[in-house]
């Protein structure tokens, strides 16, 4: 079990990453809270020894995405909620940012992770393929399609790979 010091450091370092991934996948406050807390509980109880910060961050991303997917597959989860409600929760967001986030959140689920990991976390397609356990060519395809969809939604702006 990890020490209180390690827990506080992990919360400071990875809570925003976990929260953003929750926002991408989850539609209500209770689910977000459950997943957020459970991800950090898994970290506390895990005996995994991380080689470096990158390894640790990739662990948090993978565990959060898996936890969200498991919840979404669950029959008893709370169902739909409006996009406005999703974006109202993580604090005040400017209209410009809201437009971009709405565009990302309106993508089908399988594109959202790769968009976040590629455009925000700046992972390459091979790195994303390792984190998500997907074929690297599949990741390239998902990135290309999501780029096209975002271009359509956000007025034909250039989104480079």
């Amino acid at each position: 079990m990890r020490s209180e010091q390690e827990i506080n450091r992990a919360l400071d370092q990875y809570s925003d990453t976990v929260r953003r991934l929750c926002m991408i996948h989850l539609k209500n406050k209770d689910d977000t809270e459950d997943i957020f807390q459970n991800v950090f509980l898994k970290y506390v109880l895990s005996s995994v020894v991380f080689e470096n910060e990158e390894h640790e961050k990739a662990w948090f991303i993978r565990v959060t995405i898996n936890a969200c997917r498991d919840l979404l597959r669950s029959f008893f989860r709370s169902r739909t909620v409006s996009l406005d409600e999703v974006l109202d929760r993580p604090g005040p967001i400017s209209p410009d940012h809201r437009e971009v986030l709405e565009a990302v959140l309106s993508l089908p689920g399988k594109y959202r992770d790769v968009v976040y990991l590629h455009y925000y976390e700046e992972y390459t397609a091979p790195q994303i393929s390792r984190i998500l356990g997907k074929n690297v060519n599949t990741v390239y395809t998902l990135l290309a399609r999501s780029r096209q969809m975002l271009r359509e939604k956000l007025g034909g702006e250039e989104y480079e790979q």
Binding site: L11, G91, L154
Partner: peptide, 22 residues
């Protein structure tokens, strides 16, 4: 621009109340 996505996600933070609850 790629920066628009980056900035948009950058504006999302874990709420202090959520961290405290956790």
């Amino acid at each position: 621009m790629n920066n628009r996505i980056k900035e948009a996600f950058d504006s999302v933070h874990a709420e202090e109340s959520l961290k405290e609850k956790t």
